[in-house]
């Protein structure tokens, strides 16, 4: 999960304190060398600024990414979605659009297929162990609750849901397991856990909570307790050892 801002790569903590961590294309090259399974790019300022997806950036990513990738941030029209998919992305990622322009999201899933449309839902813990949906654009909580929001994604035809924990973002303390469990109960769609991973050990907890896949940002970008920028990715043996352990 790679966050873009002004064309550079950044990493947040709890959806704020964005730190510049380097050149996006250089990161793509390294993740390609390390054979990452999939990359997700989110331009975190596009929606706020009303900016369109950066097609030149997407083309540049596609020419270096020898793996599937998804792109999100400021995708609000069918034309933009088509442009992203035609220029090499496998999927588009939608967040604010799910709530603000659901009818267009529905058109996108019909036009390009569910498999090309990913919903990214930002969850935040509130009182009594409940979760609300966070709006990064307005820095407020949205009205629909977690279960209502998940069924909205389903009804609009999204093919996959990324559940991102605002509280765990950048903290490297492990995934927000209860939020994954809640989401799992609410849908049978493929579920991707995001936010808080520090090591492959954390993946197991997310899978046990019902995630179909795991994503991480800081874990793959920073190294050591001083958070030095060093792009890293587990080997397929390391990943396999976690998956196999999970089966027993």
């Amino acid at each position: 999960m790679l966050l873009l801002s002004d064309g550079g790569l950044v990493k947040s903590k709890n959806f704020q304190d964005c730190r510049y961590v380097g050149d996006a294309l250089n990161a793509v090259r390294i993740f390609s060398e390390k054979e990452a399974d999939e990359l997700v790019f989110l331009d975190i300022e596009a929606t706020r600024r009303g900016a369109s997806p950066d097609i030149e950036m997407i083309k540049a990513i596609a020419s270096e990414a020898y793996m599937p990738f998804a792109y999100g941030g400021g995708v609000r029209t069918l034309q933009q979605a088509e442009n992203i998919l035609r220029n090499g992305a496998e999927k588009i990622v939608l967040n604010d659009a799910i709530f603000s322009i659901p009818h267009i999201v529905e058109e996108m899933t019909k036009e390009f297929g569910s498999q090309a449309v990913v919903a990214c839902i930002d969850v935040k813990r509130i009182i009594f162990g409940k979760y609300a949906i966070f709006s990064y654009k307005d820095r407020t909580l949205r009205k629909p609750d977690l279960v209502t929001s998940i069924s909205l994604c389903e009804n609009l035809g999204c093919g996959e849901i990324i559940v991102q924990s605002v509280d765990h973002d950048g903290q490297r303390t492990g995934y927000d397991v209860p939020s994954i469990q809640r989401t799992r109960k609410a849908t049978s769609l493929p579920l991707v856990a995001l936010g808080g991973a520090r090591s492959v050990e954390d993946f197991r907890a997310a899978f046990q909570a019902g995630a179909d896949a795991v994503a991480a940002g800081s874990m793959f970008i920073f190294w050591g307790k001083y958070q030095a920028v060093l792009i890293n990715y587990p080997t397929s043996q390391e990943i396999r050892s976690i998956l196999h352990a999970d089966m027993h």
Binding site: A62, S63, A65, L85, R86, N87, G88
Partner: peptide, 12 residues
């Protein structure tokens, strides 16, 4: 389909 990605991998 996605011709750009096919072309880049072929070049690689």
């Amino acid at each position: 389909g996605n011709l750009g990605s096919v072309a880049s991998m072929l070049r690689r």
